[in-house]
Amino acid sequence: MDLENAYDKIYRYAYFRLKNQELAEDITQETFLRFISSYGNLQEYDMRYLYSIAKNLCIDEYRRVKPDPLPEEDEARAAQNIGSTEETAIVRVALSKLPVEDQELLLLRHVNGESVGTIGKALGLSRFAVYRRLKDAEEALRKGLEVSGS
């Protein structure tokens, strides 16, 4: 996997946690810099550690100053720009009804394409717990989509 792809994944993850483009980008860059300061270089980078660092940085940031999400109008406009279909809007609504932890799992597994093992290490969960929670989250999302769709 190339570095650019890893950058995109961490950035997407940070954006999901903070809902703020600038902060997400700062956190992404800080994640890579911290990885380098610990491991020397990015030749053998490991997504598990990158996610762990990013997650902790997001938590720190959230504690420090609760980040200002985009104002509702801007957010709606940004959402329109990013994914404008009606189907996407339905998925967003269904996702918003899930707990954040489940949203996080769905992002890592189905959008960033990480393995169950990587997700487990990054979030401090066993493979079995990830697998079980992922199944539950998928089921809840499916139900949510059915309700939203009807």
């Binding site: 950058y7 954006y15 999901f16 483009q21 997400a24 769905l106 992002l107 189905h110």
Partner: peptide
């Protein structure tokens, strides 16, 4: 659909940083 739902705005400083 999930990829679209989770899509983030394009990062601005990616190339320069990398």
């Amino acid at each position: 659909l999930l990829a679209e739902a989770y899509a983030a705005p394009e990062p601005k400083k990616k190339q320069a940083f990398l």
